[in-house]
Design a protein around this nucleic acid. Sequence first.
DNA 1: GTTCGTGACTTACTTTTAGTTAGTCACTAA
DNA 2: TTAGTGACTAACTAAAAGTAAGTCACGAAC
Lengths: 104, 104
Amino acid sequence: MAHDHTLCPRFENAFNLLGKRWNGLIIRVLMNGPQRFKEISDLIPGMSDRMLAERFKELEAAGILIRRVYPETPVRIEYELTEKGHALEPIMDAVQTWAEKWVE
Amino acid sequence: MAHDHTLCPRFENAFNLLGKRWNGLIIRVLMNGPQRFKEISDLIPGMSDRMLAERFKELEAAGILIRRVYPETPVRIEYELTEKGHALEPIMDAVQTWAEKWVE
DNA sequence: GTTCGTGACTTACTTTTAGTTAGTCACTAA
DNA sequence: TTAGTGACTAACTAAAAGTAAGTCACGAAC
């Protein structure tokens, strides 16, 4: 057998996150700073609230974002990228660059 | 209503591709040059042949790769990135960099 | 003081997508 | 003649996503 350019397991793991529907868009939207549930929902056309709630839980568990509760009246809840989440910015930028050149 | 940082439709479109399971890994593997069905299949653990065949069709339709048939005996079929596909390299590199720093 | 609206979800149900197993077809080697 | 390989395809089941409606706490409007 020849040499195998086997996949890096960290790379695979990264694409388990990014390669899941909506995650890229959610992260992209949060790059503009913390936002509330409804704001994000409004910015991503086609995504249902159910999906957004589900993704938030996964992304929080993965350490990409945090959920902050401000106990005002009415209560305000914001979602914000962690350092790990912000570190995805170069990826988002690269996608944007590619998309501008090659999409449509 | 405040300003809306609405999503760029090209970006959205790009993530329709990258945000689909297996696509990132398939593209990553093809960055190392043209490869055959079975080689790619062997390099991506957990992905079935059915999925690979389906993804190839989609990625070919999206202009990311081409299917080349070499009429030898036995016939040899290779999948190769197009220019558009190769242009995804900075994204793959950015994912790799992020993964090395933040995954596991 | 009851309905109306908003924000952040949850539940129940349907459809779509993915995973699993087996099969096909054209060869070639034993 | 049988077994194996490469590149798929078909049939079926399981998991994920989509859709619609509901909940709960509140505050404002009629």
